[in-house]
């Protein structure tokens, strides 16, 4: 049945499929090639707590109202390794790599944000 289905195609269909697949490849490259982050900014209670270079491997313990949030930085990426928040959303966000990404541990009032060379396109975000 699969071979039969291929016979339904005219050569224009195959051409169309190949062209569109190529276009999809270009589109994917363009969409996902966002500027890489160079630094990570750590916020505690709304204040910038630290700003680290992403290339330097480092583990940082930030104390918030609930306890310690552990921020891990390694070879161009950063994550929240551990957090006392009940739902663990910021830990589950995993490794962040691109400029503009962030992980927010709201109960412990701690967040990390990756920044690149270019300034942010927006002033602030509100939820």
């Amino acid at each position: 049945m699969v071979i039969e289905s291929w016979r339904l195609l005219k050569w224009g269909d195959v051409l169309c499929l190949l062209l569109l697949a190529a276009l999809w490849g270009v589109l994917t490259y363009w969409s996902w090639a966002q500027p890489r982050a160079t630094r990570v900014r750590i916020y505690q209670d709304g204040q910038v707590y630290a700003e680290l270079d992403l290339m330097a491997a480092k583990t940082l313990h930030v104390t918030g109202p609930l306890g310690e949030t552990v921020v891990e930085v390694a070879s161009g990426k950063a994550r929240i390794a551990a957090d006392p928040s009940p739902r663990q959303y910021c830990v589950q966000a995993g490794w962040l790599q691109q400029a503009g990404q962030s992980a927010i541990c709201l109960p412990n009032r701690t967040s990390i944000e990756l920044v690149g060379h270019q300034p942010r396109a927006y002033d602030s975000l509100s939820y």
Binding site: L8, L9, K10, G12, D13, C16, L20
Partner: peptide
């Protein structure tokens, strides 16, 4: 306007879905 001799429903469907 596609020449239907060489382009079947698959081409039309692909373009319309996109």
């Amino acid at each position: 306007f596609l020449p239907r001799r060489h382009f079947g429903m698959v081409s039309i469907s692909l373009l319309s879905a996109l």
